[in-house]
């Protein structure tokens, strides 16, 4: 019989098949008459400027790093959460100490402002009155 992972594998296969069959039948059925206008990024006529590869804010990287640490924390907590009830208060305490240690880290990040988000500071266009009068 299938193991639990076997069932997941069946789901993965079905998901892949669903996408493949959908795209393939669409490819067979649809007419294919591309023109230059159709192939542009925005069909509404807007011309794209520059590359889509823009440089992201460094904040994202710090957040991703913090996420990774807490990801590993969750991995360690998972086996603990399955079994701690067998050990009563002691088992509970073990996990709580682990969590407190990492909570200190979160407080540090919080205090240092790593969890804050950079607010955009838009430069409002400023119209010089004198320039206007000169025209």
């Amino acid at each position: 019989m299938l193991t639990e992972f076997g069932k997941i594998f069946v789901f993965i296969l079905l998901a892949g098949l669903f996408v493949a069959v959908g795209i393939f039948t669409a490819k067979i059925l649809r007419p294919h008459r591309p023109t230059k206008e159709k192939l542009e990024t925005y069909e509404c006529g807007e011309d794209p400027i520059g590359t889509p590869w823009v440089k992201f804010n460094v904040r994202f990287y710090v957040v991703a790093l913090i996420f990774l640490i807490f990801d590993v924390e969750v991995v360690m907590l998972f086996p603990w959460a399955v079994t701690y009830q067998k050990f009563g208060a002691y088992g509970y305490l073990v996990g709580i100490i682990f969590l407190i240690v990492l909570f200190v880290g979160m407080l540090y990040e919080w205090g240092k402002g790593d969890l804050e988000w950079d607010r955009p500071q838009p430069i409002i266009p400023y119209l010089h009155k004198e320039e206007e009068q000169n025209k």
Partner: peptide
């Protein structure tokens, strides 16, 4: 836990 704290 402490190692993860240091890494963080």
């Amino acid at each position: 836990g402490i190692l993860l704290l240091i890494a963080l």
